[in-house]
Design a protein around this nucleic acid. Structure first.
Lengths: 216, 216
DNA sequence: GAAAAAGTGGAAGTCACTCTCAAAAGATAG
DNA sequence: CTATCTTTTGAGAGTGACTTCCACTTTTTC
């Protein structure tokens, strides 16, 4: 029992992927995926019905038909049940996939809107629910912001490579920070506007503002 | 008993001011200030000795010679003992104090470096300790980021006025978000570099990058 | 089919945080 | 300066997230 936390969840700022295809996996793995999904579903349902704070882990456990201790085996914290996802590597790949002669910021923008579009197509509804929750519950907002910091660390090496700068370059870091900050506000603005129109377009507009040089 | 939480602490992303002058206040007020300061001091000391998680509120209460319930009367959460400050209004004023013909971003940069310089002169040591803690403890980092979001909301109306845009203007929001994101990474970079050189200069350099248009 | 590995539930414990209430201390009116 | 009113405090009893530990069951492996 080397690895006593075999299902630790990566953290980021975007919704979780839908259940991966249960292909060619042992019974154990399939069950794990289902349990994980059951907990997540139960959580979303209960939280929408009763609110985040009013929903206890015990209730979640009961609804997902597992014990409370199992809930914590799958997710390190209650917050993570809602916040965990695995989009950072997706975004990193999307950037790497852009033509090498594209300037870093443009590549980042295109990659990001691509990923957003994908997201939007796959899990439209959940994106809205999640972002609305995050906007409303301070604890979740704080944690999402931490996720953005994590994303920053993921993105740094990728953009360092593309721009030919060292990973710990001051300007690079500042620029990535600016992008994340801008992105966040764009997402919030989208939620405040009702969260109905195309998310990827909102993101694209935000990053365009940065490219044009932050004129006001 | 209208106001049952008379000492609620404003939140932001910068260190707390040193104990305000206890001028012409009743005994009651003076005691409150001292209690608040005692709690804060005790917390800083214990946290540096034992680490953040290892320090319980009970210990803090004991060291500050108050009851645990009193600690929570003064600070809404343990995190706030370290994070609470009142710098947002200071920054807002500093911006308003800039000449009206200065472009918004320039005014913001100058105001911010001014405030940072002031901070640096007044509470050099605490700034370092605080930022190092924030960098190291995930919970605090998350909460600080939430503080940046709060700061964003404070700054928005001020910059809206200066730029002649509505407060809910999309581009405005994105730009302020970008500034805060950049600022944060600049602070982290400063901590990582040892936190010894001039903080206001670091901040100034970061905002310069934004003004120049995020080239990489 | 038996041993090994992995996953689960249950119980007991810690700690942040809330609520309530009565006692203490400071402000205020006469 | 004393009686009263108001604010602040501490004590105690919760709640709920999270941890740790252990015995038990289920899958995998040989």
């Amino acid at each position: 029992m080397q690895d006593n936390d075999p299902m630790a969840a990566p953290r980021s700022s975007l919704p979780a992927v839908p259940a991966p295809l249960e292909a060619g996996l042992g019974l154990r793995e399939r069950k794990k995926i289902r349990t994980r999904e059951a907990i997540r579903q139960a959580t979303y349902r209960l939280v929408q019905e009763q609110g985040y704070d009013a929903t206890t882990v015990e209730q979640i456990a009961e609804a997902a038909e597992v014990s409370p201790s199992t809930v914590f085996r799958y997710f390190p914290t209650k917050e993570d049940i809602i916040l965990s996802d695995e989009y950072d590597p997706l975004l990193a790949d999307a950037i790497r996939a852009r033509p090498a002669d594209e300037p870093p910021l443009v590549a980042l923008r295109r990659a990001m809107t691509d990923v957003m579009r994908l997201l939007w197509e796959q899990v439209t509804e959940e994106v809205g629910v999640r972002l609305r929750l995050i906007r409303a519950v301070p604890q979740l907002r704080a944690r999402m912001l931490e996720g953005m910091d994590t994303s920053t660390e993921t993105l740094l090496p990728v953009l360092a490579e593309r721009s030919g700068r060292p990973v710990d370059d001051f300007e690079l870091r500042v620029v990535v920070g600016a992008v994340m900050g801008a992105l966040m506000q764009a997402l919030f603005d989208w939620v405040d506007r009702g969260g109905t129109d195309d998310l990827s377009e909102t993101v694209d507009r935000a990053l365009e503002v940065l490219e044009r040089g932050l004129e006001l």
